[in-house]
Simulated assay, not measured.
Amino acid sequence: MITVGIFIYPDIQALDLAGALDCFGQANQELLAAGRAPYYRYCVIGLNTAPLFAENGLQLTAQYSLDTCPQLDYLVIPGGAGARTLTANQDFIRWLCQRSTETEKIISICTGAYLLAQSGLVDGLPLATHWRFAADLQTRYPKVQVNSTELYVNSGKFYSSGGMTAGIDLCLAVIEQDHGVAIAQAVAQELVMYLRRSGDQSQYASPLKIQHSGVQRFIQLQHWLLANLTKQLTVADMAEQVALSERQFRRVFRARFAMTPVQYLQQLRLDKARSLMLCDGYSLQRICNEVGISDPRNLIRLFNASFGCTPGEYRQHFC
């Protein structure tokens, strides 16, 4: 049996903790249902066993302190605002370095990356974190290869993920390594997750890039595009909506969002197509009509290129 230790601290992100616990706990349930023995034994570790509060106000209590923690096979370090503060705690950093020599996998979720970076254990190695904190993490720890785009990365025993839900994707990947795709898929389905979000997929969806920009005319453009996806839209149509020449629009859009207008429009179509795939009564042709893709073969090609599966295979993951 594998012992999974999950470290908690004041101002932890509760979802990072719950996501990891639910993934490994559900894996045990799926193994039992398959007639196999549970594989994961998990324990919650803190600096001490005094009650503490997560960022959302949830009160938590560790089962073990650093001094009483049993031997671990996997160590999970969730993120949270408190992670940046905890980097100054030399007792924890020393404990982390000591434990790393005997731990098979060390998994950081979101801003838990700050603690791994502070330890020096990942100097020269890739380390994923939430895109919002990537620049700060890289400035503080220039020896680390900060990855702000992929959902998760793995280098030897060190695993790291981007945002909170990407931590679940990472735990699913670890479960797949341990037990194969069938068990990992069963866990994903139980958690209503899409298993085949591989680590190299972007953690920053294209629609969010527009929404986060704060530029009102581009936000309005997004709304207009979503309302007109059934039409055959051109870059000239998009430029007209933001009152720019087509040439200027192409230049400004690419500089601001690191993609072309055509790539962005395609991502909007794919995002809506993914949602419609999960609706009863929607054939492939009907979905194509709803998202402005004329030929179902084009949608199949785009799905394979973007998600590594066909629309039908995508739908099966949720059945």
Score class of each variant (00 low, 15 high):
312 G>S: 09
247 R>N: 12
134 A>I: 07
45 I>R: 02
212 H>W: 09
316 Q>Y: 14
225 L>V: 14
166 A>R: 00
208 L>W: 10
178 D>P: 00
166 A>Q: 03
187 V>D: 01
235 V>W: 04
316 Q>S: 15
176 E>S: 08
310 T>L: 07
113 A>V: 00
228 N>F: 12
43 C>Y: 09
198 S>D: 11
93 I>N: 06
114 Y>P: 01
297 R>I: 11
228 N>Q: 09
194 Y>K: 00
199 G>P: 00
229 L>K: 01
280 D>W: 01
319 C>T: 12
79 G>C: 00
277 M>K: 00
298 N>L: 12
21 L>C: 09
152 Y>S: 06
318 F>W: 04
26 Q>R: 10
252 V>G: 07
256 R>V: 09
236 A>W: 06
180 G>W: 10
290 E>F: 09
294 S>G: 13
298 N>E: 15
118 Q>I: 04
126 P>T: 12
114 Y>H: 04
179 H>L: 08
143 K>S: 15
87 T>V: 15
76 V>W: 01
270 L>A: 04
214 G>L: 06
130 H>C: 06
166 A>F: 05
131 W>A: 06
150 E>F: 10
142 P>S: 05
105 K>D: 04
184 A>P: 03
222 Q>K: 12
279 C>R: 11
14 A>G: 13
289 N>L: 14
80 G>P: 02
254 R>Q: 13
65 S>L: 02
126 P>S: 05
191 L>V: 10
69 C>N: 07
177 Q>W: 07
192 V>H: 10
204 Y>E: 01
204 Y>R: 00
319 C>P: 04
256 R>K: 13
246 E>W: 10
261 P>I: 00
33 A>E: 11
302 L>I: 09
124 G>C: 05
151 L>W: 07
67 D>S: 08
65 S>H: 05
189 Q>S: 12
114 Y>I: 03
78 P>V: 00
135 A>Y: 10
112 G>F: 01
189 Q>V: 12
170 L>P: 04
83 A>D: 01
138 Q>R: 09
98 Q>W: 07
125 L>P: 02
104 E>R: 14
104 E>Q: 15
96 L>E: 02
279 C>T: 14
76 V>C: 03
13 Q>Y: 12
187 V>F: 06
190 E>N: 13
263 Q>I: 10
62 A>L: 02
32 L>Q: 15
11 D>M: 12
155 S>H: 15
169 D>K: 04
181 V>F: 11
241 Q>W: 10
301 R>D: 15
228 N>C: 07
129 T>G: 02
160 S>G: 07
5 G>H: 01
16 D>F: 05
199 G>N: 03
66 L>K: 05
8 I>K: 00
184 A>I: 02
264 Y>K: 02
286 R>I: 09
59 Q>H: 13
170 L>A: 11
85 T>M: 08
261 P>A: 11
193 M>F: 14
205 A>W: 13
174 V>N: 01
275 S>P: 04
194 Y>V: 08
133 F>A: 12
295 D>Q: 14
219 I>Y: 10
257 F>R: 00
159 Y>K: 03
47 L>H: 14
290 E>H: 04
181 V>I: 15
44 V>D: 05
211 Q>H: 04
91 D>E: 11
118 Q>F: 06
219 I>E: 08
255 A>K: 13
134 A>P: 05
91 D>N: 14
253 F>H: 04
246 E>H: 06
174 V>H: 03
182 A>G: 12
236 A>F: 05
6 I>L: 08
159 Y>F: 13
116 L>A: 05
319 C>R: 14
8 I>H: 04
21 L>N: 06
89 N>A: 07
193 M>K: 08
